[in-house]
Each structure stands twice: as C-alpha cells, then as structure tokens.
Nucleic acid binder design. Structure first.
Lengths: 195, 195
DNA sequence: CGCGGGTTTGATGATGCTCAAGCCCGGTGG
DNA sequence: CCACCGGGCTTGAGCATCATCAAACCCGCG
C-alpha cells in the first residue's frame, strides 16, 4: 500500500531502511469512492493526503454556483488545503474524489512529529512545495497572458494524462473558461487541423 | 545590512548566535538602481535575492510586447526565478528594480552549502515556499473566478502597501487587465462611493 | 518651455459568457 | 428489447466585459 509514497520520497531524498519503515507509521490509509469528499467548504482541513490510487480535485464554488478547479491530484501527487491545514482556519475549498481512490493521510500534529523524527523529510517537503510553486506560478502567468485557446493547447501538450481522465467541463473549469467556450475551441482546432 | 534577513529568519526558526553570524557569510550584498535588472529573459537565474530595501518586480513579456507581472518584492521578501535557479535553464522572466534597492544575493551552490551548514534553514525555506504557494494559489483562484473590479478591490484591502508604491499601470498588469480598464474601474468606484 | 511618464477618456471591436435547446451514449428498469 | 433518464458534449443567438487604438490631459523636472 505504501509503495508509491516510498518511491516518491526516495526520488527526492535518501532514507535508511528503518526510516522507511518508520515513515509508514505516520500515515492512515483511507479509501474514497467516486464523488465522496475528503474536505468540504467550511470544515477545517485535518489532513494532507498522498494519492496512491485514483484521481481527486480541489475546487471552490463562487456565489453564482460555478466551480473553479484549483488542482487535480492523481497517483503520486499530494492534495490538501495548505492554508487551512496549517492555520486551523475553515477552508474555502472542496476536495472530492473523481474516481475511486486510495489515500494515505497524515494529520497536522503527526506531520510535525514526522519532521522531528526524520529531519530529511523537511527537505522532501521543501522540494515538493518548490515544484508545486513553480507549476502554480507558471499556470498563473499563463492565465494572465494567454487567451483561452492557447491555454488549452498548452495544457494538452504539457500534461496529456489529465485530458485522458478528466471530463471536458472540468478541464474548462481548470482553465477558467466555460464548457461552451472549450467546446467551440476544440471544434475549431479539429477542423483547422484536418485541412 | 543583514538585519532584516536575520529578523525574518528568526521569525520562522531559532538560530544560535554563531549560526546567525555564519548565515551572513553566505550572502553577497548588491545595490541596484531604479530600472536596473537583476535578471533578463534568456539568462540563467544565478541568484535568489532577499530584499533589504527597495521594490522589485518579476514579469514576462508576451509576443505582443505586453508585460505581465508575476510578483512584486519589497523589504523582507525574496525574489528569484525558482525554476531557472534550480534547473540551470534560461529564464523567461525579467526581474527589475522599481526603486533603488539593496539586496542580499545567494548563488545556487552556496545555497546548497547553506542548507548543509545550517540544517534548520531547510525548515525556513520550506515555510517560505509554503506561504508563497498559499498566496499564489489564492491569486490564481481569484483570477479564475473573479471579474476585474473584484480583483482590484481584493488587492487594495489585502495589501495596501502595494498600491501606495506601485504605479497604476503595473497594478493592472499584476491583475491581468489593461490600464484603461483599471482606470475606468477606479472612476466608477469613486463616483459610486461618494453617493 | 517642452519633454516623459503616467493616467484618463471615447469609440469600436473581439473574446468569451449566458441562456436555451438539442444531441449522443451508456445504463437501468419495465 | 425498448423507453427513459442523466451526464456530458455541442450549437446558436444575443450580450457583457474587457481589449484595442487613438487622442488628450496632467504634472513634475530638466
């Protein structure tokens, strides 16, 4: 059950065999069925979750009822609401399973314990956050500078696994456009491509 | 010269007096005059910079020549192109001083040395990245879900120091709208506010 | 005085949104 | 086996928001 996590950690730092065993003891396995929630708006985010299997998303809902997807998380990814997790404030995000999922959860105090017990995990999480920040900055910059069509093109050629598993209207929501607009863009692309 | 940095570090972790002295030895002081660049598009980003004084911005320039501001950095903030700094790839960002500035620079290999020499700095940078990620995610989510006017309102009541020091057209560029649109929004706000 | 940087204003147009309807397809139950 | 339903995708018409382009204005400064 913890294979992916170990692998993921060992890609960034090196651990002794004992440490690797110790690591596992900090996590709680949890299964989620499609459409179940790990976190709902207004709750305090208790866990950081590592995805062993399945696909989740985090999103907000605005006053008009529209959803805006902040993140997808598939096998080998982490998902949480960092702010709520850290501060203990209620969250504004929903985290939902888009497919049946198997997660490894860690609570905040256990997370702190883990960093004490295996100091090199500090480095692991730093690298994780760093990569995440780079990706988020890039996405923000794209959203600031590119029109809808180019956002879509950029998504499909940087990350082809997402479009495979995610329905169109959620891709639209991830890009910050409507499903209708995305549909039209795709139509136009496929027709201009054929000629 | 290193007061702000020490202060900033001590807010997140505790250091012995020796460590604090040691810390300083890793940084190169550097002054920049208004409109000078720390980094230009196409260069590899050699430094992470801590701002002791002044105000900088990082931005990209798109094909049409429009600028898109990713970040402002004032006293007590860090600025860099993380991706280029880490990977050694050429950067797509410009980093420019908007006011005369005093910086503390650290090179990549020295940065690695620092983490070796003072392991608790790993934690400092982790917390830094975490806060930065939270802020960037929030900004992205706002950009995905809010219209121009609300973006502006949100900016002025969360961060009043920016509008003080930054010309309007750069605020517009930070929000991802045009100067003209921002000007009209402000006009409309001030008139509706008076009544 | 004239220049440059920043802001404002107006006219026009494009991009993307809203609302409403229809379609496709796989699953379910009579 | 067929009818029906729901989820997701598409299409069209009209509209709102925001961008573009061009010009004028304001003001501090050499």
């Amino acid at each position: 059950m913890h294979e992916l996590l170990s692998l993921n950690v060992r890609q960034k730092i090196s651990l002794s065999t004992q440490e690797e065993e110790l690591l596992k003891t900090f996590f709680i396995p949890k299964k989620l069925r499609k459409k179940q929630f790990l976190l709902q708006e207004g709750e305090v985010c208790q866990y950081a979750a590592f995805v062993e299997k399945g696909l989740l998303r985090s999103y907000t809902v605005d006053k008009k009822g529209n959803e805006h997807i902040l993140q997808f998380a598939m096998e080998g990814w982490w998902i949480s609401d960092l702010f709520s997790f850290y501060s203990g404030e209620p969250s504004v995000y929903m985290i939902e399973a888009m497919e049946d999922a198997e997660l490894l959860l860690i609570k905040k105090d256990r997370y702190e314990d883990l960093l004490q017990a295996i100091p090199s995990m500090e480095r692991y999480f730093r690298l994780l956050l760093q990569n995440n920040l780079i990706a988020t900055q890039r996405r923000l910059n794209d959203k600031l500078s590119l029109p809808a069509e180019e956002l879509y093109l950029k998504l499909i050629d940087t990350c082809d696994s997402i479009p495979q598993r995610v329905p169109q209207h959620m891709i639209a929501s991830f890009l910050g456009i409507t499903r209708e607009t995305l549909s039209r863009i795709r139509k136009q692309l496929s027709s201009s491509h054929k000629k």
